[in-house]
Amino acid sequence: MTVRKATQRETQKILQHSEKVMEEATMGYVKPQKDKAYQMVLSYFDEGGFYLVYAKNNNIQGWIGIGRAMDSFADEMVGLIFEIFVLPKYRKQGIAEKLFFEAFEYLKEEGCKIVQLNVFAENPAKHLYQKLGFREISTIMERQL
């Protein structure tokens, strides 16, 4: 098992999953569109973001997208998790936690004191995030008109 920075080729393979990642992450709230999902991820890359991959025998089983962003409320640079995904056949094996811990170490080395992520309300992964120490700091609400 290895957690390491994704190569350019691996990043391209990961991006092929963007539509599925968007579908799962948004819990059906956002209609998955490959181009839209792809563009959202590329915007993080433009700001220096990248993927860490969990690989066994060079077979990628999961990944986490990390970067940094300015938190305008706290007026400081924070670590950012923009994506976490474990391929379905490798779930429930602790891979996501391993990816998070590696991301935390990397972001800490980069001088970040806080790491943030966005999660949709009904996403079952929210329990994992809470287990890892994340807490809610904001809620977006909407109403149909």
Rank of each mutant, 00 (worst) to 15 (best):
T2M: 11
T2W: 03
V3F: 08
R4S: 12
R4G: 09
R4T: 02
A6F: 01
Q8A: 14
R9L: 11
R9I: 00
Q12M: 00
I14H: 00
Q16T: 00
Q16K: 14
S18E: 02
K20R: 07
K20W: 01
K20F: 07
V21M: 11
V21E: 04
V21W: 06
M22P: 03
M22K: 04
A25D: 07
M27C: 15
G28N: 08
G28Y: 14
K31P: 02
P32T: 14
Q33H: 03
Q33A: 07
K34F: 11
A37C: 07
Y38V: 00
Q39E: 12
V41G: 00
L42N: 12
L42P: 04
L42E: 13
S43K: 13
Y44C: 10
F45M: 11
G48W: 02
G49M: 03
G49D: 03
G49Y: 00
F50M: 08
Y51S: 04
Y51P: 07
V53L: 13
N57W: 09
I60K: 12
I60W: 10
Q61V: 06
Q61E: 15
G62F: 12
I64M: 08
G65A: 05
G65N: 05
I66E: 08
R68D: 03
M70D: 07
D71S: 14
D71E: 09
F73K: 06
E76L: 15
V78R: 15
G79W: 07
L80C: 03
I81G: 05
I81K: 02
I81F: 04
E83D: 15
I84Q: 01
F85I: 02
V86T: 15
V86D: 09
L87V: 00
L87C: 00
P88M: 08
P88S: 08
K89V: 14
Y90E: 04
K92F: 10
K92Q: 14
G94L: 06
I95C: 07
A96I: 13
A96T: 13
E97Q: 13
K98I: 11
K98W: 01
K98T: 14
L99A: 09
A103M: 04
A103S: 13
A103L: 05
E105Y: 12
L107R: 02
K108P: 02
C112F: 07
V115M: 06
Q116F: 02
N118H: 12
V119Q: 03
A121T: 13
N123F: 09
N123V: 12
P124L: 07
K126S: 14
L128W: 05
Y129W: 09
K131A: 07
L132K: 11
L132T: 00
L132R: 07
G133R: 12
F134G: 05
E136Y: 01
T139K: 15
M141V: 08
Q144M: 09
L145M: 13
